[in-house]
């Protein structure tokens, strides 16, 4: 990864040009060709460094509801429980964590009713001992981009609040 890659990754996370030729504009900012920009981005995607180039929307402003759910799942039932949960397209993140509450997932759905329906179905699973619904009460800070400086050291800055 050279210094152009680092700069490109930084710009890609916060100031993607809203113009008819964004990759050409990025190239101009970095002193490289449009083709070079496109090749580098293609490479990052292939290597899994970037998951996608696209829009991140605010669920609330689109009328969606969201929450975080934590479960205490019996030893040996974790995989089954996780795959049951993963089947819901409303589940965006699902992690095993090192705590008594060992499975944590986030839900985004068009209504509170749908959220409740999913949580109820998860709560009834045989491996689930405890279930906590943790919808946000107040949001202080959300989202961040990760910048790579010249030394390759990571630096994180807030993108919006």
């Amino acid at each position: 990864m050279d210094s152009i890659d680092k700069k490109l990754l930084n710009i890609m996370q916060k100031d993607f040009p809203l113009s008819s030729t964004p990759y050409k504009d990025l190239g101009e900012m970095l002193g490289i060709s449009e083709e070079d920009v496109i090749n580098r981005l293609g490479k990052y995607k292939k290597e899994g460094l970037i998951r996608k180039i696209g829009g991140i929307f605010n669920p609330r402003s689109l009328g969606y509801k969201s929450t975080l759910v934590a479960l205490e799942v019996k030893e040996g039932k974790l995989e089954d429980t996780a795959s049951f949960i993963n089947r819901y397209q409303e589940v965006t993140h699902n992690y095993q964590r090192d705590h008594t509450f060992n499975l944590w997932f986030t839900l985004i759905a068009p209504s509170r009713e749908r959220i409740k329906e999913i949580i109820d179905s998860v709560e009834r699973l045989p491996g689930v001992r405890k279930c906590m619904n943790l919808p946000s009460v107040k949001m202080f800070k959300i989202g961040a981009y990760f910048s790579l400086d010249e030394e390759g050291e990571r630096e994180e800055q807030k993108s919006d609040q």
């Binding site: 996370q13 916060k14 993607f16 809203l18 460094l49 970037i50 696209g54 829009g55 402003s61 990760f146």
Partner: peptide, 22 residues
């Protein structure tokens, strides 16, 4: 405020962010 941002979504792990604590 409908669109939070437009751009690259990076994989923190691959980008070298091995450790995040809740």
């Amino acid at each position: 405020g409908m669109l939070r941002r437009l751009g690259a979504v990076v994989h923190h792990y691959q980008a070298g962010f091995a450790y995040n604590a809740m």
